[in-house]
Simulated assay, not measured.
Amino acid sequence: MLLRRITQHVKDQNWFAVFIDFIIVVVGVFIGIQVANWNEELAERVLEQQYLERIYFDTERLITDIEDGLEWSEDQKASQVVVLNSFRSGVLRPQDKAIFERGLAFFGYSPIHTRESLAVQELKSSGRMAIISDIELRELIGLVEQRLSTTKEHALHMKENRRKHLSEVSSHWQFIESDFKPKGITKIQYDFDTLANNQEFINRLSQMRAMFQIQRRNAKNDQDDIRQLQKAVVEVLGYTPQRKNNQ
């Protein structure tokens, strides 16, 4: 329709009308491009919001995992003190026997969790990190991811060292049973007097406890970093995401 009108105006040499038609075409194309850009930008912002909410829920999960681990390790921390104090003094008090055996059986154990946001990993693998428009938040995400990765590598290294110590330590006692619960029931068979006079054995326990304390400290640092990220996500969103019934 418009093309036929322009052609007719050219035939009639109505250059003013041709100019007006040209302007209409240009403006129409411009508006069409702008509308497409606005729709694309709107879709990007909706997708960004969805990713930020997913990152928030990931931080919730990670914080809960760390809290559970720290709660479990709190019992370990107390039992390790009983184990080392008993060996160093050469006296195992009857009232300490249960916590002593649980502590010795799981001495230095610290679970290694994969502390990463699935939403962030998805953005990284798809090359779409730039969808997060807030530059400071994007930089914070990268920083926290780097710290969590470093902590994980450190934990894996210490796990290997602990495994070497444990192969020596566990040869001095025999596992009988356990419900594997914090403050639960654990039974092992051992010769306390012989172990209390084995300084190399006690030194290994001390080294394992030092590694355990480092991992516990690292877990708390991870928790602080993740909470910082969670707070930043809420600030960018302008609200605290709430889980839907089917989530």
Score class of each variant (00 low, 15 high):
R4M: 04
D12K: 02
Q13S: 05
Q13K: 05
N14F: 00
N14T: 00
W15F: 01
W15N: 00
I23K: 09
V27R: 02
V35D: 06
V35I: 15
V35T: 12
W38N: 14
N39H: 12
E41D: 14
L42G: 08
A43T: 13
A43Q: 13
R45L: 11
L47K: 15
Q49I: 05
D58H: 12
T59S: 03
I63R: 04
T64G: 09
D65G: 11
I66E: 13
G69M: 13
S73G: 11
Q76K: 14
K77A: 06
A78C: 02
S79R: 11
S79V: 10
V82Q: 01
S86W: 02
G90R: 03
V91G: 14
D96V: 03
A98T: 06
A98K: 14
F100H: 06
F100T: 05
E101N: 09
G103Q: 02
G103C: 01
L104Q: 06
F107M: 11
Y109C: 08
Y109T: 13
S110L: 07
R115Y: 08
R115S: 15
A119K: 14
E122D: 15
S125L: 10
S126T: 13
R128N: 15
M129A: 05
S133G: 09
I135Y: 12
E136S: 15
L143T: 12
L143H: 11
E145V: 12
Q146M: 10
K152R: 12
A155E: 03
H157L: 01
M158S: 04
N161E: 09
K164R: 14
S170D: 15
Q174D: 15
Q174N: 14
F175A: 07
S178Y: 06
D179W: 02
K183C: 12
G184S: 00
G184H: 01
I188A: 04
I188F: 05
D193I: 12
L195D: 01
A196W: 03
N198V: 10
E200T: 09
F201K: 06
F201D: 03
M211H: 04
Q215N: 04
R216W: 07
A219V: 03
K220P: 03
D222A: 08
D224I: 09
D225P: 07
R227M: 07
Q228V: 10
V236N: 01
Y239N: 00
N246I: 04
Q247G: 06
